[in-house]
Amino acid sequence: MLLSAAVAIAERREGKFGDRYYAGRSRAVLERSFIAFKSSTWFVVLSGFVEPVLYLFSFGYGVGRFIGNIDAGSGKMVSYAAFIAPALLATSAMNGAVYDSTWNVFFKMNQSRLYHGMLATSLGPLDVALGEIAWALMRGLIYAIGFMAVVAPMGLIPSWWGVLAIPAAVLIAFGFASVGMAITSYFTRFQQMGAINIALLPMFLFSGSFYPLTVFPGWIQAIIKALPLSQAIQLIRALTLGVMQVGLLVHVLYFLVMITFGLFITTRRLDALFMR
C-alpha cells in the first residue's frame, strides 16, 4: 500500500540512538531554506561579505599608513592590513552565524510558527536545529571564500596554510550558530534580542582585531583570550600568517565544545518548547 512510504522512512532510524530527537533528515530542512532562498532577493544574501572587505580597505590602508608594520606575535612583522584581515574574516563568520541563529530563528520560532509545522511531521528537533545551522554554514562558507578571493591576491595571506582559514571560518560559524540558537530559544520578546548586540560589541572591539592584545594588562589579556571571538581570531590569524603550532588544536577543541554544548541545549529546548 502506498501509505507506508512516510512510515517506512520514519522506521529506518527506529531503535537507533536518539531516535526521539533525530530522524536523520536535516537535509529536508536545509532544502526548505534553499527553496526560500531561490525566491528571496539573492543580492541581499550574496553581498554579505562586502562589510569585512570595506573594513579591510578603510583600516588596513587608511589607518595602516599611520601604523606601519606590526608585530603579530613571536616577533613576526606584518603589514597592518595583513594583521587585521584574518580578524575580519573571523568576525564576519561570527556575525553571520549569530544573525542567522538569532533574528532568523526567533522569527521562525515565534512569529511564523515554522518550526511548529516542521515538528508536526516525522522530523525531530535535532533535525530542525542541524538543518537550520547547516544553511547558516553554507552561507558562511560562501562568504569566507568570497573574502579570501578578494584578500589573497592583495598579498594579505602570506602562507599557504591560509587555505585552512576557510574551513576554520565554517567551524567558528558552527560554534556561534549552535550557541546562538540555544540562547535564542530562551527569548520570548524581540527586545531581548538587543542583549545579543550588547554582548557582541565589546567582543568585536576588544578581541584583538585592530591591535595586539599586548596593549592591555596581563589579567585583561587572559580574560579576553578566553572569549570565543578572540579564540577565533587567534586560530585564523595563525593560519593566514602561517604560524603553525600544535596549540592551535586547543582553539579547534574550544569550538567543538561550543558546538556540542549548543546543539545539546538547542535540541532539548526545541523539544521542550514544542512539546509543551
Binding site: 599611520f66 601604523i67 548586540n197 550588547i198 560589541l201 565589546p202 572591539l205 576588544f206 596593549v215
Partner: peptide, 25 residues
C-alpha cells in the same frame, strides 16, 4: 536597551579605537 547602547557604545569605541589603535599610532 537604548540606554545601555547609548552609554556603552561611546565608552567601548573610545577605549578600543582611541586608546588601543591610538597607542599603535
Amino acid at each position: 536597551l537604548i540606554a545601555a547602547m547609548a552609554i556603552l557604545n561611546p565608552l567601548l569605541y573610545l577605549v578600543s579605537f582611541g586608546i588601543g589603535v591610538g597607542s599603535l599610532i
